[in-house]
Design a protein around this nucleic acid. Structure first.
Lengths: 217, 217
DNA sequence: GTCTATACGAAGATAGAC
DNA sequence: GTCTATCTTCGTATAGAC
């Protein structure tokens, strides 16, 4: 494992190169499977730079979560603002679309979108309580707004019911983002199908919308 | 970390004690977070016994997946047999129930059910290709039967559509089994709510059933 | 303020004695 | 089958150069 990652801007400061490389490699290979030596090598940085800038591998991971999820959640908030500026209140289908689309069609300046999406999907399924805490902190401002909007769109549900359907949406989106199901239903040894395409977005939105609406009619 | 796990039968052979302890500790603490030294200590075995019986930590994990998922999938197949013995063909709701209920209400002789469910949820979100392969092998015989049954219940869908809804069901169940969403929507610092209860099973079934049926009407 | 060379303890894996 | 000793690689810490 030697040589730099050509997708990383070598002119950027070390700190930024480390975060960009972390999102890419954690997304592509997995977090545990990526050693700090391979990561700093790909970023063109010294092994000790991680400790200097982030204190630990987990600190670098948190910085990656911050960067990747902040952009995503800013976009979600922006689109929710638009939706709520309209005269009629948003439907459940509208809310699901606004939450899911930015996740499935991540726009990234350096074309890292697939790796970023996988990174977020992986982070959402991390068992470590500290990572979960970081994710929850990033998601909390968005959580609050979507839960309120869902509550208005589904006045017959209690708080537990709203939280349940919101968590199901977040979880299912994370599953698709992580590509965890790409290997499902293959005969043993058969090769893996590509991954979620943007064409699948409509199916994901339809599935989640119907799931949320279940029981209201 | 010293002392044996009281829940593990000390009379059982070393190999079985290791598998039982692995399912329990991997489920409770996470796979990466469980060291082989701590695991063998809890199982009352020597550190080298893992290498002898399973060649590696991953080999032990695979044995745990085999044991935990085989019981689950046997139960699914048994209930699917019952369903298909009836005169009228099973509905989508029936199929979802048969697949989801054994996952959410795992019956275990030693009351390890919660740990087993979390173990399976974690395994389903493992990024390692070799673990995914093992899971896919275990799931494949069940996959084939459920996909066929879903195809019969939804004659208007093509193969891709059937695979999509099946994968969504597997993924969403895994999310709930892993408890990954317990921490969602808490103010930062707030304590974590318990976990999925059996009472939630009906909501999960309703959500998935509606999601699968979306687009057929 | 940044970055590098180097060292330390713990992890998983393994060889060979018993 | 089981155990001790040992190997490599991991994440992390520190001293000091620029």
């Amino acid at each position: 494992m030697s040589g730099r990652d050509p997708a990383v801007d070598q002119e950027a400061p070390t700190r930024d190169r480390l975060i960009a490389t972390a999102i890419r490699l954690f997304g592509e290979r997995g977090i545990e499977a990526t050693s700090m030596r391979a990561l700093t090598d790909a970023a063109g940085a010294n092994i000790a730079s991680v400790n200097y800038h982030f204190r630990s591998k987990e600190g670098l991971l948190r910085a990656g979560i911050d960067r990747a999820m902040r952009a995503l959640n800013d976009e979600r908030r922006r689109r929710l603002d638009e939706l709520e500026a309209a005269p009629e209140p948003p439907s459940v289908a509208d809310l699901v679309r606004v939450f899911v689309e930015p996740g499935l069609a991540l726009a990234s300046p350096r074309g890292q979108s697939a790796a970023v999406a996988r990174f977020i999907g992986r982070v959402l399924s991390e068992p470590s309580p500290r990572i979960r805490e970081t994710v929850a902190e990033q998601l909390y401002p968005v959580d609050a707004r979507f839960l309120a909007a869902l509550g208005r769109a589904l006045p017959d549900r209690d708080e537990g019911g709203i939280k349940f359907v919101y968590a199901s949406m977040v979880g299912l989106l994370g599953v698709w983002q992580s590509g965890a199901l790409d290997q499902l239903n293959r005969a043993p040894g058969q090769r893996v199908t590509p991954g979620t395409t943007t064409a699948d977005a409509e199916r994901v939105i339809a599935f989640i919308t119907a799931g949320i609406l279940a029981g209201s009619r």
